[in-house]
């Protein structure tokens, strides 16, 4: 059966009503400082500073990207050994943010 026009870029979900985050996914959206490798076209965060405390990143468990207008945002889920965080890098503004604790 031929499939009709699947478009992976369809993002109508951006218009769904705003809701509060569930307790498990505490939204933070705070600016942070990050030490990262930029090599071979890849970004690998190594550690970050949040609220004057240093966090060493043990593992980047996943990474993905999203385009928001002209900005490309690179997301990383990172494991510090104690907690899991999601951080993001805005390739246009060149800023890092701590999105949420997972």
């Amino acid at each position: 059966m031929p499939q009709q026009g699947f478009n992976p870029k369809a993002r109508w979900d951006r218009h769904i009503p705003e809701q509060n985050n569930s307790p498990q996914e505490q939204g933070l959206d705070e600016k942070i400082q990050v030490l990262a490798w930029f090599r071979s076209g890849k970004i690998t965060p190594c550690e970050f500073i949040w609220n004057n405390k240093e966090y060493r990143i043990k593992q980047v468990t996943y990474s993905w990207q999203e385009r928001l207008g002209r900005d490309i945002i690179s997301y990383f889920s990172i494991d510090t050994g104690n907690d899991l965080y999601q951080i993001s890098f805005n390739n246009t503004a060149f800023t890092w943010r701590l999105d949420k604790i997972l």
């Binding site: 478009n7 870029k9 369809a10 993002r11 109508w12 951006r14 218009h15 769904i16 009503p17 705003e18 809701q19 385009r67 207008g69 002209r70």
Partner: peptide, 18 residues
Amino acid sequence: RFGEHTVFPAVISLSRKM
């Protein structure tokens, strides 16, 4: 080029205000 709804009518932004 940039993905559906990169540019959209401004009134649609009210769809997020439940």
